[in-house]
Design a protein around this nucleic acid. Structure first.
Lengths: 165, 165
DNA sequence: GAAAAATTGATAATCATTCTCAATTGCGAG
DNA sequence: CTCGCAATTGAGAATGATTATCAATTTTTC
C-alpha cells in the first residue's frame, strides 16, 4: 500500500480525519528526497502561498511518526530532523559536526547484539537512537570550513585572550 | 591522578581559575553515585544554603564535560542528564520510558563494529550516542505504574471521545 | 443539511539552557 | 603584600523549538 493509503488507514483507525492540510503535508514530504526539519516544511508552504500553521505541522508530524511513516531524529540541540520512512527499513545516522550532513548506515550485526543485550537485562526495547557524530570525509579533509550552517553555539565560553573587557 | 587534580590541570592548561564554586560543584558531583540533572545539583546547593547560580553551574558542567570528567546524556526531551566519569570507561544507556531509570551497558563488540563502519565511510568519529529506550524489567512486569516521574507530555493529541468542546 | 466530532490557526506559554554585563574574585608580577 | 588584569560570578533577560489554548472552521455522520 502506498504512503497516502497507509496514512488514511492510520487516521481511520484512530477516528481522525484526512484533511486538506494533512494531505498537503504528506505530499510535500513525499517529494523530499532526504532529511528535513519542521522549519524546512514551513518555509516550503510559506513560499508556495499555501501556508500551514506551525501547530498544525507539528501535530501532523507527530501523527506521521506515530503511524510509522516518518522518523524523527532528535538532535542533541536545536531542531529535530525528520525523514520519510515509506518502504524503507530501519537505519541509524552519522552526523557531521561541521557541515551538518547526515549519513545513513545500517548494520544488522549491531542490531542483533543490541537485542541480545536487552534480552540479557530483561529490557523490553521499544525504540533506539544510535548517532555517530564527527567529521565526514569531505570536512575532515579540509582544515576548517563550512562551519556556517551548523555552528555549535555552546555556552558563554570565550577563549581567553580575546576578552573584550 | 584524582578528579580534583585532573580538573585543576585542565583549568590551568586553559588559563582558567579554580574558584570556590567550581570546587564545590566538583565535590558535590564526586559524592553522587549515579546520574543527575543540573536541577538536582541546583537543589542540593539551595538546600545547603551555599547557593550557586544556574549560569555558573551550567558553565562549570560544560567545562567538566570538556575535561572528560563528566558525561552528558542528551535526552530526547526535557533536561539533560549527567554522570561522573572519574576512572570509568565508556558505556551506553537503556532508558526506561515508564520509571525513567537509566541502566548502563557496555559492549566492545558493538564499539568495534561501529568503528569499522566509520572507517568504511571515512567518517572521523568524535562522539556517539547509543540509547535504548523501552521498559525495564520491573516496569514491563507491572501493567501501568510509576508513570509520574517521567510523563511523556506529547503534543496536543487528545484521544477522541473526551473532547471538551 | 444539521448536528457532532475533529481540526485549524493565532497567540500565548513552556522551560531548559544561554546570554549580558556590571560587580567581584583569583592570581602572577613586582 | 598589593596591583592590576583577566577570568568569574550572579541576576535577570533572552532564546527558540515546540506545545497548549480555545474560538472559529471543516469533515463526517445521520
Amino acid at each position: 500500500m502506498d504512503a497516502a493509503g497507509r496514512f488514511a488507514r492510520y487516521l481511520a483507525s484512530h477516528r481522525l480525519k484526512m484533511t486538506r492540510s494533512r494531505r498537503a503535508i504528506l505530499e510535500e514530504i513525499l517529494s523530499i528526497r532526504g532529511h528535513f526539519t519542521a522549519d524546512d516544511l514551513l518555509d516550503h508552504f510559506r513560499r508556495r502561498g499555501r501556508e500551514v500553521a506551525p501547530a498544525t505541522l507539528y501535530r501532523t508530524l507527530a501523527r506521521l511518526v506515530e503511524a510509522g511513516l516518518v522518523h524523527r531524529i532528535d538532535m542533541a540541540k536545536g531542531q529535530a530532523r525528520y525523514e520519510p520512512m515509506f518502504g524503507r527499513h530501519h537505519h541509524d545516522h552519522m552526523i557531521c559536526l561541521r557541515c551538518g550532513k547526515i549519513i545513513e548506515f545500517e548494520n544488522r550485526e549491531i542490531e542483533r547484539i543490541q537485542a541480545a543485550v536487552c534480552r540479557r537485562k530483561k529490557f523490553r526495547l521499544l525504540e533506539h537512537t544510535h548517532q555517530l557524530r564527527g567529521h565526514c570525509a569531505g570536512c575532515s579533509r579540509t582544515g576548517a570550513a563550512a562551519r556556517s550552517a551548523f555552528a555549535s553555539g555552546g555556552i558563554d565560553v570565550r577563549s581567553p585572550g580575546r576578552n573584550p573587557s
